[in-house]
């Protein structure tokens, strides 16, 4: 028994070391980005509020890129999450056992496709189709919404919307496979309890399975959001790389990640490099804040639900 407790202690300390290493790494990230961007960090908030990015005149403002990052990720979640949840529910609750593993295999294989392949496919196949067949229809029937309006007669295939759709496709494998695991982890007793109360299949899934696996599903959405935020090559190829804030989803845009991917390799002056590193710092900070905000929001939501269920 003594031997057991000693190995337990060693194991515990090992895991503590690993866990703190991750935290240390995160702190190191912020520190490195902070020191690397010291030259432009001094200029303060104009970096975030400015909308002109001019490396020749050393004027650096990332507001349009920040906007592009947030909007493309939001589109990706709006399109991608419902599809992913549908896939996950089908695979864990409804699909016959024989088709489950081939389906899961295909979904997980999508996660292994390199992002440059998605980017090329987006540029050569998806963008022309969207430009010719989808966007004109959207503009005609949903044009009363400002986000589907466009002043130009010839819509460019590359746009914030195209980037959002590519990102949605890219996050589906991650979100669906992790939320499927969360759904599979729900004990059968939960489902049985729901059926015992006379619930139909869809009611049982809604009442017992989805609410039980809620935290796992949200975790999968966070991971998807992180992927959408940080994606570079695929987005760069289909977004048009123009620092613009127009409100229309059909106009070209820019994201922080593609800015860094585009310009870092050929940045030659120290101030320019510093500005690009600061763009990385902004990206990391935004991801950090989004995650915290989402977690706070969800913990409130969960508390309210639980409080409501006791009434």
């Amino acid at each position: 028994m003594k031997r057991r407790s000693r190995t337990d202690a060693i194991f515990k300390w090992l895991t503590i070391i690993f866990a703190t290493a991750v935290v240390f790494l995160a702190v190191l990230f912020f520190y490195e980005l902070g020191t690397g961007s010291s030259l432009t960090l001094r200029s303060g908030f104009s970096f975030i509020t400015g909308s002109k990015w001019d490396p020749v005149g050393n004027v650096f403002g990332v507001l349009p890129m920040l906007y592009g990052s947030l909007v493309t990720s939001a589109i990706a979640l709006v399109i991608g999450v419902p599809i992913s949840l549908g896939v996950a529910i089908f695979l864990s609750e409804l699909a016959p056992h024989r088709v489950r593993s081939p389906f899961s295999f295909v979904v997980e294989m999508l996660a292994a496709v390199p992002s440059v392949v998605y980017g090329l496919w987006g540029l050569f196949v998806l963008a022309p189709v969207l430009r010719d067949d989808v966007y004109p229809v959207l503009r005609t029937y949903l044009g009363f919404l400002p986000i589907f309006q466009s002043s130009s007669t010839q819509l460019p295939g590359v746009s914030i919307m195209t980037a959002g759709i590519i990102l949605a496709i890219m996050i589906i494998p991650i979100v669906s496979s992790i939320s499927r695991d969360a759904l599979l982890a729900v004990p059968d007793s939960q489902r049985e309890a729901a059926y015992a109360l006379g619930a139909t299949k869809s009611e049982a899934i809604r009442i017992s399975v989805l609410s039980y696996a809620r935290s796992g599903i949200f975790a999968s959405i966070f991971l998807g959001l992180g992927r959408a935020f940080g994606e570079t090559i695929a987005v760069t190829m289909v977004i048009g790389n123009t620092p613009l804030i127009t409100g229309s989803l059909f106009s070209p845009g820019y994201t922080l990640a593609s800015l860094i991917a585009n310009e870092f390799t050929e940045a030659t002056t120290p101030v320019y490099i510093s500005a690009l590193v600061e763009a990385g710092l902004v990206l990391l900070t935004v991801v950090f804040l989004t995650n915290i905000a989402a977690r706070v929001l969800i913990s409130r939501l969960v508390k309210n639900r639980e409080a409501a269920s006791y009434l």
């Binding site: 001019d54 020749v56 005149g57 048009g240 070209p252 820019y254 310009e263 050929e266 940045a267």
Partner: peptide, 22 residues
Amino acid sequence: FTSGCPCYGTSISWPAFEIGAK
């Protein structure tokens, strides 16, 4: 270039109506 020349570089601030491709 409102801030004066040099008016060239490996990346510059292009007018907003254009498309940037990688």
